[in-house]
């Protein structure tokens, strides 16, 4: 007797849900929501910083996901495809709030950095998520995109409409702020 569901079995179910959701089946849509909502909400929280904004972005993200589902052709991970949608939705929301255009003096930011290692490995996901969400919007966005999503500074600059220098400086400030807050606690 198979005690654990094989990855193939899970992927088959996922495909069924995706197909059902494309056809407008509410159960399939709910299944997809249940499958993705936790991870996507964590992403929204990391980008938006507060729960209310994160809930709005999560809502918008799922509406966009279901409306764009027809364009997902099964190439690549569905979760990865969904993640892009939610990151973009979060960025759009932040762009609307005009909180991303901040410029900093790189030298001044560098001086804030500490050389001591950050005890990140002792933090749980929720704690780290909290610290990230407490960062100012601009720092938080660049930090999320560079450190977690893996964007380059050039890509961040193009996406957010800022200079590469600003992206780098905001990352430095974000790291410094994160380090100091984690150390305090």
């Amino acid at each position: 007797m198979q005690l654990f569901k094989s990855k193939e079995h899970l992927n088959t179910r996922e495909s069924d849900w995706i197909q059902g959701a494309k056809e407008g089946d509410p159960r399939s849509q709910k299944a997809i929501y249940d499958m993705l909502s936790r991870k996507m909400f964590a992403i929204c929280l990391r980008y938006m910083g507060d729960r209310e904004s994160a809930e709005d972005v999560l809502q918008d993200g799922f509406v966009t996901l279901f409306s764009k589902l027809g364009s997902y052709l099964g190439e690549g991970s569905f979760e990865g495809w969904a993640r892009k949608i939610f990151v973009n939705t979060a960025l759009m929301s932040l762009r609307k709030k005009d909180v991303l255009k901040q410029s900093e003096d790189v030298d001044a930011a560098w001086s804030i950095l500490s050389d001591e290692p950050t005890p990140v490995q002792n933090l749980g996901y929720n704690e780290l998520l909290t610290y990230i969400s407490e960062l100012p919007a601009g720092f938080r966005t660049v930090f999320n995109m560079y450190v977690i999503e893996g964007y380059s500074h050039k890509e961040i600059a193009e996406e957010l409409g800022i200079s590469e220098t600003t992206s780098r400086s905001q990352l430095l400030r974000a790291r410094a702020l994160l380090q100091s807050r984690i150390k305090k606690h």
Binding site: S37, R38, M40, F41, E55, D56, L58, F62, I148
Partner: peptide, 30 residues
Amino acid sequence: IENAEVKAPSRVWRAVSSRIASGTAAAPAA
């Protein structure tokens, strides 16, 4: 951290489902 999970409130799904069903793209005002 990119695989972190946080439970979303149930009201989010209710809002999503009603917007999908009504075809409303824009979220209602807060």
